[in-house]
Computed example of a mutant assay.
Amino acid sequence: MNTPYVLIAYYSRHGSIETMAKHIARGVSKVSGIEARIRQIPNISTTTEQTETEIPESGHPYIELNDLSDCAGLVIGSPSYFGSMAAPVKHLIDQSSTLWMSGQLCNKPAGAFTSASSMHGGHEMTIQSIMTPLLHHGMVWLGLPYKNKSLITTMSGGTPYGASHLAKSTGESKLTTEEQLLCEAQGERIAQFSLKLL
């Protein structure tokens, strides 16, 4: 039997979201009996809504629908674009209607994470924009409880809706200690619930 996995799917323009995905994977790896699978979401052409390249130039492999259908849990990461998910993330979700019709994501835990260049740049709204279609899939939404002390002490990113990062306008992708800990806590929590709901 194959080892169950938490799928960490991300779209990253400047590296912050990819860095967060790696920390979420570290959190998943703290739970025995489940693995982390990181996949990046490809950029799309603004004119054709098709993926721009077949193979990524760098980073993790591109996500495929069977990565989604076979996962035990799901975490999606997107930069905040005007308080909403990036177009490539929405495009991926729009392609998942066959999974919705067959209920393949139903009763699986889900979460999201984001990065924005200002404190009030839409961290929570972006996570909520990802949450809505996943609730339509019947997924079980998991946020970050305040038992994570980093959520109280953070002076940068971090929300009860999911992990976030306050990126500098210079495009710097270095996460604070609190942001790293919250990413790991989110990954660990999703992994724990994924095993419980198998």
Rank of each mutant, 00 (worst) to 15 (best):
E35K: 15
H14P: 05
N107E: 15
G59C: 13
G171F: 02
F82A: 10
T170D: 11
S16E: 02
P109G: 12
S156Y: 08
M155W: 05
G73L: 05
S117M: 14
E49L: 15
T3S: 14
H136T: 04
P79Q: 10
M101D: 13
M125Y: 11
C71P: 02
I152W: 13
R39H: 01
R13Q: 12
P133R: 04
M20F: 04
K149Y: 07
A163I: 02
Y161A: 13
A185L: 04
G83M: 11
E52A: 11
A87K: 09
T98L: 07
T170V: 01
Y161D: 08
V89Y: 02
S69H: 11
K108T: 00
G77I: 06
K168C: 12
M155R: 12
L144C: 08
A86S: 03
T51S: 15
M155T: 14
G138E: 09
I8Y: 04
R189W: 10
L166R: 03
S164K: 05
V6I: 14
Q186L: 14
I93D: 03
C183A: 02
T51K: 15
S164T: 06
S97G: 07
T154M: 05
P42M: 12
M20G: 13
C106R: 10
S84K: 12
K168G: 15
S96G: 06
I17M: 07
T154H: 03
G121V: 09
M119K: 14
K22P: 02
Y161S: 10
K108E: 02
Q40K: 09
D67G: 07
S173Y: 05
P88H: 09
I34R: 09
D70N: 15
I93A: 04
L182Q: 08
G121S: 10
M101A: 15
K22Y: 11
A36E: 10
E172M: 06
R189T: 08
Y11N: 04
G187Y: 06
H23N: 14
G121E: 12
P145V: 06
A25M: 01
G138V: 08
A21N: 01
G171I: 03
T51W: 12
M119S: 12
S129M: 04
P79A: 09
Y81Q: 14
H91G: 08
A163L: 01
Q192I: 13
M1F: 10
P79K: 12
Y161I: 00
L195I: 11
A112W: 01
L182V: 06
S80I: 10
G73V: 03
L105Y: 00
S78T: 12
R39A: 04
L181C: 03
G138D: 13
S84A: 15
A21G: 03
R39L: 05
A112H: 02
S97H: 04
P42R: 10
C71F: 03
E57P: 06
N66L: 11
I93K: 02
S16C: 14
L7R: 12
K30L: 12
Y5A: 10
E179K: 14
H60K: 06
S80C: 08
L166H: 00
V28D: 10
R26N: 15
G111R: 09
R13N: 12
E57H: 11
I41D: 00
S32T: 07
T126N: 07
G158K: 06
T48Y: 13
T48K: 11
T159A: 03
T98R: 08
G187K: 04
E179F: 13
E179T: 02
N66F: 09
V140E: 01
Y161N: 11
